[in-house]
Write a protein that binds this DNA or RNA. Sequence first.
RNA 1: UCCUCGGUAGCUCAAUGGUAGAGCAAUCGGCUGUUAACCGAUGGGUUGGGGGUUCAAGUCCCUCCCGAGGAGCCA
Length: 429
Amino acid sequence: MATPVRHLHQHDGETVTVRGWLANKRSSGKIAFLHVRDGSGTVQCVVSRAEVSDEAWEDVKRVTQESTVRVTGIARRDQRAPGGVEIHATDFKVKALSDDFPITKKEHGTAFLMEHRHLWLRSSRQRAALRVRSEVCQAIRDFFYEREFTLIDSPILTPTACEGTSTLFQTDYFGTPAYLSQSGQLYLEPAAAALGKVYCMGPTFRAEKSKTRRHLMEFWMVEPEVAFLELDGLIQLAEEFVCYLVCRVLERCRDELAVLERDVSRLEKITPRFPHVTYGEAIESLQGAGYDVRWGDDFGAEHETFLASQHDKPLFVSRFPAAIKAFYMQPDPQDEKLALGIDLLAPEGYGEIIGGSQRIHDYELLRRRIEEHQLPLEAFRWYLDIRRYGTFPHSGFGMGIERFVCWMCGLSHLRETIPYPRMLHKIYP
RNA sequence: UCCUCGGUAGCUCAAUGGUAGAGCAAUCGGCUGUUAACCGAUGGGUUGGGGGUUCAAGUCCCUCCCGAGGAGCCA
């Protein structure tokens, strides 16, 4: 039975067997140092010529990087070993020899690494980032489970554009066009009337020809939707949510953040309460800083970066002009020109990680908005029904999981936060 | 879609318009505590494709392809 490398420190002095892949080899003629990765960690195995059979030594000589191997030996704590534990081998066997591994110990460009994404996953930084992603997804489910939300999986194939804004991927559905979902929100609202507090988490697709480090064609989004929740409650939920996730990453991913050389002190500052400005205040502060923006403009990337850079914590921006926001956002009762929407801008230049709003619950108003946005009324009949059969105020938000993970890991590009990124004109591997 | 930069050995990069190179990787040899091990030797090229200028093009011009970063849009 193989022992996971992660648990080796519990087996000091015992004979253990490890199965995995050869991460690196150094040899000095009659002693060899083999680094073996088994998925749970990497351990240094010391093989002395005099202490193993001729067959084992032949395998030591011929083993190549990333070959599948099996090592048996005695686990020993040793200061000289990376990780503090090493195995003094009594046997070593190559189970499957690897061809020349394309990714070597020296540096590579990202274009080359992306072309070999399926192999790049084996490197320590990529493994660390994907572990953080896994922890974030688990924490999301735990957060909502603890608060008695119900998971509602929204469809990926949809008959129409949800919001009528973004470009969608079109596919064929038995002879009629169908589209890959760009949001589960509209399908979540009816479920909120059934179950009160609901959320969905799944892949989302945008066919926009975005070519930046902050965009993917296929990304994962988590979207809660809550009946009888209004804007202030939504802001509080989003803040608790983000703090919960950051705490979990700090608690459970210390080793991964160290591999990624993340400055954790920046994350330790992410505690309640988050700063909050209205759209109007944000415009004034941008104008004060010399930016050429007027009331009614949407923020550009440089504006978001400026606003977020004023704070160590994420920044809420709320009450945008209704004209630049989605059709379903509830108007501000204080000023009908404003929509009760929020954005949450992450610090350190990681941009918008959350967008949300209180939804229109008045039937006539929503119908008028659909017409004003020149959306097909018939396609939204079911969505309007929610306002016919016992309407209720409700709110929700969407968080981009890759953007959140990118921020946690301190990465400079979204492509390293998802196992197989789909980017503009790139779908291999 | 637009703007900027780039494409030379398997990889990362050099090369005034004048003989295409280095480090790493690979292969072979040496070395009993290596930390991206080290030392010696060997093999490795349609300089992204096509066209043009020139005695001479990796280098200059045109064009197409591919890549990177940014803008717009958004999460």
